[in-house]
Nucleic acid binder design. Sequence first.
DNA 1: TGACTATATGACCACTGACGAATATAATGG
DNA 2: CCATTATATTCGTCAGTGGTCATATAGTCA
Lengths: 121, 121
Amino acid sequence: MGGNIKALGESTLALVAERFRILGDPVRLRLLQALAGGEKSVMELVSEAGTTQANVSKHLQLLRRAGLLRRRKQGLHVYYSIGDPTVFALCDAVCGSLERHRKEELSLFRKAGPRRSSPGR
Amino acid sequence: MGGNIKALGESTLALVAERFRILGDPVRLRLLQALAGGEKSVMELVSEAGTTQANVSKHLQLLRRAGLLRRRKQGLHVYYSIGDPTVFALCDAVCGSLERHRKEELSLFRKAGPRRSSPGR
DNA sequence: TGACTATATGACCACTGACGAATATAATGG
DNA sequence: CCATTATATTCGTCAGTGGTCATATAGTCA
């Protein structure tokens, strides 16, 4: 009885997982966030990301190879921009989910009633 | 939804990243997918996930702690179910994005035309 | 040409996380 | 009680990844 649950093939699943994994890093999210308003040079991104230039550069390569960023070279500068606006929808969805979860926790809290002293230990 | 990525602070960003990271694993995605149709026992999930029971159990804990799964214990069995249907919307969005990207690549391919001898590498 | 700047890359280390094997815990039945 | 079954957890290992430092590459200007 092999429960055939494979709506998504193995390889597709791996691709989806990879994209999620790429988004699963605060620095990369911060870079995407910084680029939400439009393209920026690596310099600017470095100053906003709060880490070294080498590190920023590597994260940018990763995002680019994943198709999430586009690259434009002009003189000495390299400008990166969002290559797949989907990411913002994803982030919004996650934010909404987290928000909802937080509220649920709070209401569960009230439902359960104050167990002993206040939780703010 | 209240959450443009521009407005995210450090801690929120970390939370979002964590959620993405949790979704960034093929086994976990497969578990979520297996639960799309309704709750299942760990046994069933093990047989569908193609890995060991210990491994499945650990992934389930992770998903549960993240609020993505719910747990119901009944006798010897433990039944897990989706606790946050948002994940499917996320997966769909990623799939759509990947699909689009694939098509773009193809059309770019045609635009660029067949390269001359040995573009390999 | 050589100096200077912006960006990318390689070497290396530390840490994390996935995995399997063994074991622990919990519930049920004899 | 003990045995059995289902699930969770601990432990050790191993691959992968993020970080930094140093260096390489590329473009500009004098």
